[in-house]
């Protein structure tokens, strides 16, 4: 854990939260889709900072590698391949925006009320402990553990899922409507 100081931890938490919420709001409100992708990248990087603050350095690395380095680049490719830049995101109608605002605010209020009502069995209040030591070694051991608490089967299933997604996306994107018949 790189932060041992409570004041520093608090300040970092609020600064990161401000940045995350600000970038997320900008992401859903901006009209230009490429800017939206850039703001999404910012939010995901801030989340990596959150993981560092929570003491999960490995998750922070995975977040940067997979999300910021992979998925956001994929989104930018998708934007360019579908010429979404030209599809000007015309303002959503007022009714739709109000409805979406109502739904999301209700969702947020409901979850906050539930959090404040439930008695969270906090084992480790306040400061993140320096208890973890090396979480990376433990994660690796658990992922390949064949025992009752191991995750070797989900691990293999997820690797199959990735292979299926790879082949399936190539098959879907390669389909040429001009040469074959079928679906219009």
């Amino acid at each position: 854990m790189l932060v041992g100081n409570e004041t520093l931890y608090t300040i970092l938490f609020y600064a990161l939260s401000l940045a995350a919420v600000l970038f997320a709001l900008l992401m859903v409100c901006t009209k230009k889709i490429l800017r939206s992708a850039a703001y999404l990248m910012a939010v995901l990087s801030v989340t990596a900072g959150y993981y560092m603050l929570l003491g999960q350095e490995f998750m922070a690395g995975v977040q940067i590698l997979v999300y910021v380095g992979g998925i956001v680049v994929l989104f930018i490719f998708a934007v360019m391949l579908t010429r979404s830049v030209e599809l000007d995101e015309d303002k959503p109608t007022l009714g739709r925006r109000l409805l979406a605002l109502l739904v999301s605010v209700l969702l947020f209020a409901f979850s906050v009320v539930m959090f404040s009502w439930s008695e969270l069995p906090v084992l480790l209040p306040g400061l993140p402990g320096s208890s973890s030591g090396s979480a990376v070694a433990e994660i690796g051991r658990r992922l390949l553990d064949t025992g009752p608490t191991g995750y070797v089967i989900p691990f293999e299933v997820v690797s199959l899922l990735l292979l299926a997604a790879l082949i399936g996306s190539i098959a879907v994107a390669k389909y040429d409507s001009s040469s074959g018949g079928g679906a219009r």
Binding site: M27, L40, V43, A100, L101, V103
Partner: peptide, 26 residues
């Protein structure tokens, strides 16, 4: 949950399908 709600808002207001997928990622 605030981040999740912002994602839901984007999901409901976006017209571009790529934008919808970005909100889902959030």
């Amino acid at each position: 949950s605030l981040l999740f709600s912002i994602g839901v808002y984007g999901l409901l207001t976006r017209r571009n399908a790529v934008g919808v997928l970005m909100s889902v990622e959030l």
